[in-house]
């Protein structure tokens, strides 16, 4: 009983870290660029497939190299799409335009993925990590979820350091606050936008690799990932790395518990918890 409970806690914790990771890139894009990046789910999927492809090419590839390949590939695509389309869309006063542009982008990426890799589910096993276990204080824990949680936490810490402790992070926050005044301070605003778009897509790629190691992904997984990312961002609040992590934990725990009770429910209970939180907020604010 206690072992089961501990197991649920451990799984919820690790999946929660992963969900937070899924939301991080979207929070960055929406928080800084004010663009709802609807292709975020596709960047996650693409990151997974980049790692799958890299491992297929070089079977002995270590995990950090696979992560780096996915990060660089997705970040490059994030920068290119930002420069080619999203940046121009942002110059329109209507915030709906960039959102619809990224929606179109998500359709292109999703169907492009189906064209190139097919519609099948793929998983990723690097260095037999999926089978390895460690025993801590009498509990046998999977090494993979531990490593995955570690990577997510490192990524979160790195993001926090970058945004709050570096000159670039200062410029990123200034551009987010007041782009025109930031330009007056000599900051290259478009340049910062490109970096943030690349970073957001790169974070998505890391989440994608971790997801592919845990379960399998297909080109159609992007929609589910986008919705989780969105729920994490709405519940966690923008501009709060801690909030995103906590919201990820809530939803991850929900998924682990619901999967035990009803294995066929998919993400139903995650969505329901989110919706319930929404209704609760609505009621607290008073239904007019």
């Amino acid at each position: 009983m206690i072992a089961t409970l501990a197991d649920i806690l451990f799984q919820g914790l690790t999946l929660g870290g992963l969900y937070g990771m899924i939301g991080a890139g979207l929070a960055l894009s929406y928080g800084i660029l004010k663009v709802v990046q609807l292709a975020h789910g596709e960047f996650i999927t693409l990151g997974a497939f980049l790692a799958v492809g890299a491992v297929a090419l070089v079977p002995w590839l270590p995990l950090p190299a696979a992560l780096a390949a996915a990060f660089v590939g997705c970040a490059a695509l994030g920068v290119v799409t930002q420069a080619a389309a999203v940046e121009r869309a942002m110059s329109f006063r209507d915030p709906v335009v960039p959102m619809l542009v990224t929606f179109g982008l998500s359709i292109i990426l999703r169907n492009g993925l189906v064209e190139t890799v097919g519609a099948d589910l793929r998983g990723l096993d690097i260095g037999g990590l999926a089978q390895a276990n460690v025993t801590i204080a009498g509990l046998t824990l999977g090494l993979l979820p531990l490593v995955s949680l570690g990577i997510a936490l490192v990524a979160f810490a790195g993001l926090g350091l970058l945004v709050f402790r570096t000159r670039l992070g200062r410029e990123i926050r200034a551009v987010s606050d007041r782009p025109d005044i930031a330009a007056l301070m000599g900051i290259r605003v478009t340049h910062v936008h490109l970096i943030v778009a690349g970073l957001s897509a790169g974070l998505a790629a890391i989440a994608g690799v971790l997801l592919a190691m845990r379960a399998s992904v297909s080109p159609f997984s992007g929609i589910g990932h986008l919705l989780i990312a969105f729920e994490v961002v709405v519940l966690g609040g923008l501009g709060s790395i801690k909030g995103v992590l906590l919201a990820g934990l809530l939803l991850g725990m929900t998924q682990v518990i619901s999967a035990r009770i009803d294995p066929n429910a998919g993400l139903l209970y995650v969505h329901l918890v989110f919706f319930a939180a929404l209704v609760w907020r609505a009621l607290r604010g008073g239904l007019r």
Binding site: P95, L226, E231, L268, F275, L278, A282, G285, L287
Partner: peptide, 26 residues
Amino acid sequence: GMVMFHLKHAYFAIGMWVVAEIAQQL
């Protein structure tokens, strides 16, 4: 609508998507 209108703009747009997913799963 009374519930969803508490979400604004992009939040409303994707919130509706979540509701559609919930309906499908149900």
